[in-house]
Computed example of a mutant assay.
Amino acid sequence: MDEPREVAIARGWLGTPYVHQASTRGAGADCLGLIRGIWREIHGAEPESPPPYSGDWAECGGVEVLWQAALRHLRPVPADAPLAAGQVLLFRMREGAIAKHLGLVSDAEGTRFIHAYTSHGVIESPLTRPWAGRIAARFRFP
């Protein structure tokens, strides 16, 4: 079975250094930048430009900014649907905190994901129980 286009695109970003607010394959990306880059390759121009944001942008406020943006542009996946390659994962890094990290399921079994992670760049990681427990929502590209 062929891997979904989103996964093939994300694999092309592996090894891209982590650069806050960046979205350039091979030069730099953060987790949002990776998802933005996948969007551009599939759809062309981005539907909106993210405003400047600090590294701790989600630590105060209480507004689910990233979740709201995902709802505007991606298709929600029901919580009871199985994990599947190509799904965008939205993570809540701490219980009760705003969801602020993104990744993409990279295998058919839902055991791995690709994301841009501080100090590591764009990597493929096992979707371990601690990571899976942080998933706040899942989406698909339109």
Rank of each mutant, 00 (worst) to 15 (best):
W39K: 12
M1Q: 05
A22T: 05
P130A: 12
L32A: 14
G26D: 09
I123M: 10
E109A: 15
F113K: 04
S49D: 13
G55I: 06
E3W: 04
G12M: 05
I9S: 10
P78K: 13
A27F: 07
G28N: 04
G133K: 00
C60I: 09
R25N: 00
I135D: 08
A99I: 06
L104N: 06
M93R: 13
K100C: 13
P17D: 01
R112Q: 14
I35Y: 04
Y117M: 05
S23F: 00
E46L: 15
S125H: 11
H115V: 05
P17F: 01
R25E: 13
R92P: 02
H20R: 11
T111S: 15
V88C: 11
V63T: 15
L127S: 01
W13H: 00
P17Q: 01
L83N: 07
A79V: 12
E124Q: 11
G44F: 02
I123A: 08
L32P: 01
V19C: 00
L83P: 10
I114S: 00
S119N: 14
W131I: 04
A45T: 13
Y18I: 00
I135R: 08
A45G: 14
E59W: 08
Y18E: 01
T16I: 03
G110Q: 10
S106H: 04
D30P: 04
R11L: 09
L90N: 01
L74V: 04
V77P: 03
L74S: 07
E3M: 12
V122P: 09
L34Q: 01
P17G: 02
A137C: 11
A22K: 09
P50E: 14
H20C: 10
A116N: 02
E95L: 13
R36W: 12
V65T: 14
L90F: 03
R94Y: 11
L89K: 01
D2S: 08
S119M: 08
Y53A: 05
R36K: 10
E46V: 14
Q87T: 07
R140N: 05
I135V: 15
A85D: 11
P82H: 04
R138C: 07
E64C: 05
A79Y: 06
A58K: 06
V63N: 06
E3Y: 07
G96L: 08
D80P: 14
D56Q: 06
W67S: 08
E48C: 06
T118E: 04
P17W: 02
V63L: 11
R138F: 07
H101T: 03
S23N: 11
L89H: 00
T16V: 03
E48P: 01
V65N: 05
C60R: 15
R72K: 15
D56G: 09
L74C: 08
V7G: 06
A137W: 12
F113N: 03
L71S: 07
E124F: 06
G26T: 10
G96R: 07
P130T: 12
R40M: 13
A99K: 05
I135H: 07
A79D: 15
S125P: 02
L104H: 07
D80Y: 10
V122E: 06
C31E: 01
G28S: 05
Y18A: 00
G86W: 01
V63A: 14
G37S: 10
